[in-house]
Write a protein that binds this DNA or RNA. Structure first.
Length: 823
RNA sequence: GCCGGUGUGCUGGAAUUGGCAGACGGGGCGGACUCAAAAUCCGUUGUCAGCGAUGGCGUGUGGGUUCAAGUCCCACCACCGGCACCA
C-alpha cells in the first residue's frame, strides 16, 4: 500500500527517516563485484578542524553526485571517507584550552562524521580511516622505512623558523611579517638536522608522466611543470684566486660567460665561513649575513625587493678567460637552488644588471643585437634577447644559441665543468618538531648510529606537556626518548621529530582499498583492483604540494614493487572556493555560513542542490541566501507536482496528442542533456537547470491539459525522480517509494533516452546581413545550402536591408545561419 | 615578485566546435487567488531612443584577425589561488 504524499515537503522528517533506513540496509557498503567494472571516486579527506565548512559541503556533494551517477550506470563504485587528523590546530587547542590533541581530534571527527551522514553522502563508512590512529600511522611509519631502506630518506641540515622568546619552531603560517604570531618577537632562522625524502630523484618522471594524465586540468599540469622547473645548463668551476678551493656555479647562459664581471654567493653557501676568515671587513659581512637570513625566500627572490650585497674581499678566476672577478654575497641568490652561487653577467641578466648598477660594478657587453645597438653607454636594462657573440675570444661572431653548444663542449673538453640538468624542485623536508604527528621510526644508538625501528607502531605517548620551552614536546618525554637499540639492544634514544602530515595524506587512497589489514599497509591485489583512483576531487589549492607528494609516493611504491601502477589519480577535478560577499569565508571577516544551520533550516537536499546549481564546480561559488531559497522552492515545486499527479499515476494508457508528444520530447531531451553534462563535463549547474526546465514544462502541460495522460505522466514523474536522485538523494528516495516503486531509487539503473523521441523536423535559421540578425526562418532540418540561401534572399525584410547594394558573399551554415555580406 | 586562474544584465550564472549574447535561478515589476497577508500559480524584465513597428549600443580596458569574436591573437587593468612547516 502506497502512502499518500503530504501536502507539504518536510525535509527534516524524510531525511532523518532515510538516513536511518540506508544505514540499516547498508545501502552504501561496497562489496567487491568482479562482474562489474570498478570505479573509484575519491574526495580529498578533511582535516577535522571542528565542524564542516561550505568548502567541504561543496567538495563532498560533487563527489557524491559522481559516485551515485556511476553506481546508476552499473559500476562497482568505491566511495570512501576518512580524516587527515594529524596537524597543528590540535596542538594549538592543547596549548590554548588544555585539551589533549587526541581527545580534541576524536571529538571533532565524531561531530563531523555526523554532519557528513546528514548530508546524505554515499560513503562506505566501514572503510573509514584516520591518520592519527596507530593502526593507520604504523603503516605510515612502515612506508617511511621502506623509502629509507631504498635510499629515498636521508638527513641533512636545514633551516627552521625560530622564535627566541617562545623558544619554539614556528610554521610559516605562524610567522606574520617576520614576527611570531603569538608573542610578536622577531623570528630568526636556525639550522637543524632534519629528515628529507628524495623527491628530486623522481623529478624527471614527475615531469614526464604529466603527459600521461589527459584527465588532469591543463592548469594543474602547468603549475606542476613550473614547480619542477627543469632547466638545462652547465656547471662551471671558478677556482679561487688564492687557495685551492673552487666555486661551482650553474648557468643556463654559458654563451655569456665572457661577460662575467663578478660572482655572487648565497650567504648560506658552504664556502662562506672560509671566505669570512680572510675577509678584511669580517664584522660587516657577518652583520650582512644575519640581516639577509631574516628575509624569507619570497622576499629575497622578488624582483621588487632591493638587491643587497657585500664584497667578501676574495676573488675567483673565470676559467674561460683567466680574469680575476670579485666574489660578493647577495640576498637574491638562494642556497637551495643550483649550487647556491651564480656568475654575474650584468649586461645580459636583469638582476645582475640592477645589482651592478647599485654597487658600481663593471659591465661588459658580450652579446650584440642584430641591429648592433647594444652599448654600455645607452643601456638601461639588461639585453636578454638573442644575438651575436662579441668580446668572447675565439667564440666571437657565433650566434648565441650556437655558442651555448660550443662553449659547453669546450668546458667539458677542458675539464672545468659539465653539462647539468637542474630543477627548482627541492627535496621534501618531512621532519616536524611537533607532537601531533606520526613519529619517525628511527633510533639513535651510540654504537650503531641511526637504526630503523621495525617495532611498529612507534606509539605517540599520551601525557605530554605543551609548555613551550625550547624542546619539541616529545623530546621532553623521557619515557619516549629512552629506548633500546633494535640492533644491539643497548641503550639508545628515539628520534623526536614527527612526520609532515603530507606524508600521511600521500598514501591514504591506498589504505581505503584494504582498510582493516593488520599484516600489511594494503594488499597488493586489492590496491591493484581499485586503483588508480578514477576520479579525484578537491580544492585547487592542493594543485602542487599534496598532488605532487602523492604522485611521488605512488612512483616510489611502484618501484618498490608494492603496486603495479605509477600514477595515483586518473582524473582530477579541482573545485573552486565558496565565497561570501566576494571573499573567502573566514572568522575574521565574519562572513561564515554554517552548513549545520542550512541543513537544519532547509534540509540537506536543498543545500546540495543550491551548491551544485550556483556555479560550475571548477569556478569559485558566491554564496547567496536567496539562491538557497530558490533551490528549496524548486524541490517544493517537484514535491507538489508529484503529489498532485499521484492519483493519475495508476491509470492506463491514454492519448498521445501534440501536448503529450511535446512533454515526452522534453523528458527525453532532458535525459540526454543531463547525461551529457554529467558524463563529459561535470556541469551540474546546467544539468539542474535542464531539470528545472522539464519541471516548468510539466507545470505547463498540467495547466494546458484537463485530463492528463497517465502513461505520459508516469514516464515524466519516473524519469524526473531518477534524474534527481544523484543530486537530491533524500527527496528522490521518498518520492520514488511514494509513487509505488519497491527498492531504493539509488539501486536503479540510469534511464536511457529514446533518440526517436528527441528528433526535431524543423529548425530556426537566422539570416544576417553584414553580421546583424535581420530575419528568422523556420526551415526543415535537412534543407540544403541552396534552399537556405534562396529562401534568405527571397525574404522581404532581407531585401529591404540589402537595398541597392551589391551582394559580395553569402555564407551558409546548415541548420544554423545565413550571412549575406553586402557593400 | 614569480607561477597559475578569473572577469558577461540589478544579481549567481548560460552560450558544448568561431555562428541568434543573457538559458536556468535570484531580485524587481504586473496580474490571479485571498477579507487581508504569506505561500502558490501565470506573465514580464540587458540598456538607450521611440506611442509603436523598429533601430542604435552592449560580454573588464585598448587594439587586431574574421563574412562573423564572450569564444582566437597582442598589450593593459582588477580580483583570486599557490609559493615548499596551514591543510
Amino acid at each position: 500500500m502506497v502512502e499518500r504524499l503530504g501536502e507539504k515537503y518536510q525535509p527534516k522528517e524524510i531525511e532523518r527517516k532515510w538516513q536511518r533506513e540506508w544505514a540499516a540496509a547498508g545501502l552504501y557498503t561496497v562489496a567487491e563485484d568482479p562482474q562489474k567494472p570498478k570505479y573509484y571516486c575519491l574526495e580529498m579527506f578533511p582535516y577535522p578542524s571542528g565542524k564542516l565548512h561550505m568548502g567541504h559541503v561543496r567538495n563532498y556533494t560533487i563527489g557524491d553526485v559522481v559516485a551515485r551517477y556511476y553506481t546508476m550506470h552499473g559500476y562497482n563504485v568505491l566511495h570512501p571517507m576518512g580524516w587527515d587528523s594529524f596537524g597543528l590546530p590540535a596542538e594549538n587547542a592543547a596549548i590554548k584550552h588544555g585539551i589533549k590533541p587526541s581527545v580534541w581530534t576524536r571529538d571533532n571527527i565524531d561531530y563531523m562524521r555526523g554532519q557528513l551522514q546528514q548530508l546524505g553522502l554515499s560513503y562506505d563508512w566501514d572503510r573509514e580511516v584516520a591518520t592519527c590512529l596507530p593502526d593507520y600511522y604504523r603503516w605510515t611509519q612502515w612506508l617511511f622505512l621502506q623509502l629509507y631502506k631504498a635510499g629515498l630518506a636521508y638527513k641533512k641540515k636545514a633551516a627552521v623558523n625560530w622564535c627566541p622568546s617562545c623558544k619554539t619552531v614556528l610554521a610559516n603560517e605562524q610567522v606574520v611579517a617576520g614576527r611570531c604570531e603569538r608573542c610578536d618577537s622577531e623570528v630568526s632562522h636556525k639550522d637543524l638536522e632534519q629528515w628529507f625524502f628524495k623527491i628530486t630523484a623522481y623529478a624527471d618522471k614527475l615531469l614526464a608522466n604529466l603527459e600521461k594524465l589527459p584527465g588532469w586540468p591543463e592548469k594543474v599540469k602547468l603549475m606542476q611543470k613550473n614547480w619542477i622547473g627543469k632547466s638545462e645548463g652547465v656547471e662551471v668551476d671558478f677556482p679561487l684566486a688564492d687557495g685551492k678551493e673552487k666555486v661551482s656555479i650553474f648557468t643556463t647562459r654559458p654563451d655569456t660567460i665572457f661577460g662575467v664581471t663578478y660572482m655572487v654567493l648565497a650567504p648560506e653557501h658552504p664556502l662562506v665561513p672560509q671566505l669570512l676568515a680572510q675577509a678584511p671587513n669580517r664584522e660587516e659581512v657577518e652583520a650582512f649575513i644575519a640581516e639577509v637570513r631574516k628575509q624569507d625566500d619570497l622576499t629575497r627572490t622578488s624582483t621588487e625587493t632591493e638587491k643587497l650585497g657585500i664584497f667578501t674581499g676574495s676573488y675567483a678566476v673565470n676559467p674561460l678567460n683567466g680574469e680575476k672577478v670579485p666574489i660578493w654575497l647577495g640576498n637574491y641568490v638562494l642556497a637551495s637552488y643550483g649550487t647556491g652561487a651564480v656568475m654575474a653577467v650584468p649586461t645580459h641578466d636583469q638582476r645582475d644588471f640592477e645589482f651592478a648598477k647599485k654597487y658600481d660594478l663593471p659591465l661588459r657587453v658580450v652579446i650584440q643585437s642584430p641591429q648592433g645597438n647594444v652599448s654600455l653607454k645607452t643601456m638601461t636594462e639588461a639585453y636578454v634577447e638573442d644575438g651575436i657573440l662579441v668580446n668572447s675570444g675565439s667564440f666571437n661572431g657565433l650566434g648565441n644559441r650556437e655558442a651555448i653548444e660550443k662553449i659547453c663542449a669546450h668546458i667539458e673538453r677542458e675539464n672545468i665543468g659539465q653539462r647539468k640538468v637542474n630543477y627548482k624542485l627541492r627535496d621534501w623536508l618531512i621532519s616536524r618538531q611537533r607532537y601531533w604527528g606520526a613519529p619517525l621510526p628511527i633510533v639513535y644508538c651510540e654504537k650503531c648510529g641511526a637504526v630503523p625501528d621495525e617495532n611498529l607502531p612507534v606509539l605517540l605517548p599520551d601525557g605530554v606537556a605543551f609548555k613551550p620551552n625550547g624542546q619539541s614536546p616529545l623530546a621532553e618525554c623521557e619515557s619516549f626518548v629512552k629506548t633500546t637499540c633494535p640492533r644491539c639492544g643497548g641503550p639508545a634514544r628515539r628520534e623526536t621529530d614527527t612526520m609532515d602530515t603530507f606524508v600521511c595524506s600521500s598514501w591514504y587512497f591506498l589504505r581505503y582499498a584494504d582498510p582493516h589489514n593488520e599484516e600489511i599497509a594494503f594488499d597488493r591485489e586489492k590496491a591493484n583492483r581499485w586503483l588508480p583512483v578514477d576520479q579525484y576531487i578537491g580544492g585547487v589549492e592542493h594543485a602542487i604540494l599534496h598532488l605532487m607528494y602523492a604522485r611521488f609516493f605512488t612512483m616510489a611504491l611502484h618501484d618498490l614493487g608494492l603496486v603495479d601502477f605509477d600514477e595515483p589519480f586518473e582524473n582530477l577535478l579541482t573545485q573552486g572556493m565558496v565565497l561570501k560577499d566576494g571573499s573567502k569565508m573566514s572568522k575574521s571577516k565574519g562572513n561564515i555560513v554554517d552548513p549545520g544551520y542550512i541543513i537544519d533550516k532547509y534540509g540537506a537536499d536543498t543545500a546540495r542542490l543550491f551548491i551544485l546549481f550556483a556555479a560550475p564546480p571548477e569556478r569559485d561559488l558566491e554564496w547567496s541566501d536567496q539562491g538557497v531559497e530558490g533551490a528549496h522552492r524548486f524541490l517544493n515545486r517537484i514535491w507538489r507536482l508529484v503529489a498532485d499527479w499521484q492519483d493519475v499515476l495508476p491509470g492506463g494508457k491514454g492519448k498521445a496528442t501534440a501536448e503529450e508528444q511535446a512533454l515526452r520530447k522534453q523528458v527525453h531531451l532532458t535525459l540526454k542533456k543531463v547525461q551529457e553534462d554529467l558524463a563529459n563535463r561535470f556541469q551540474f549547474n546546467t544539468a539542474i537547470s535542464a531539470i528545472m526546465e522539464l519541471v516548468n514544462a510539466a507545470y505547463h502541460y498540467r495547466e494546458q491539459v484537463a485530463n492528463p495522460d497517465p502513461a505520459t505522466v508516469r514516464e515524466t514523474v519516473d524519469m524526473l525522480i531518477l534524474m534527481l536522485a544523484p543530486f537530491a538523494p533524500f527527496i528522490s528516495e521518498e518520492l520514488w517509494s511514494a509513487t509505488g516503486h519497491t527498492g531504493s531509487v539509488h539501486k536503479q539503473a540510469w534511464p536511457k533516452y529514446d533518440p526517436k523521441a528527441t528528433v526535431s523536423t524543423e529548425v530556426t535559421v537566422v539570416v544576417q546581413v553584414n553580421g546583424k540578425v535581420r530575419e528568422r526562418l523556420t526551415m526543415s532540418v535537412d534543407s540544403s545550402e541552396e534552399e537556405l540561401k534562396a529562401k534568405a534572399l527571397a525574404s522581404a525584410k532581407v531585401k529591404e536591408f540589402i537595398g541597392a547594394k551589391q551582394i559580395r558573399k553569402v555564407i551558409v551554415i546548415p541548420r544554423k545561419l545565413v550571412n549575406i555580406v553586402i557593400g
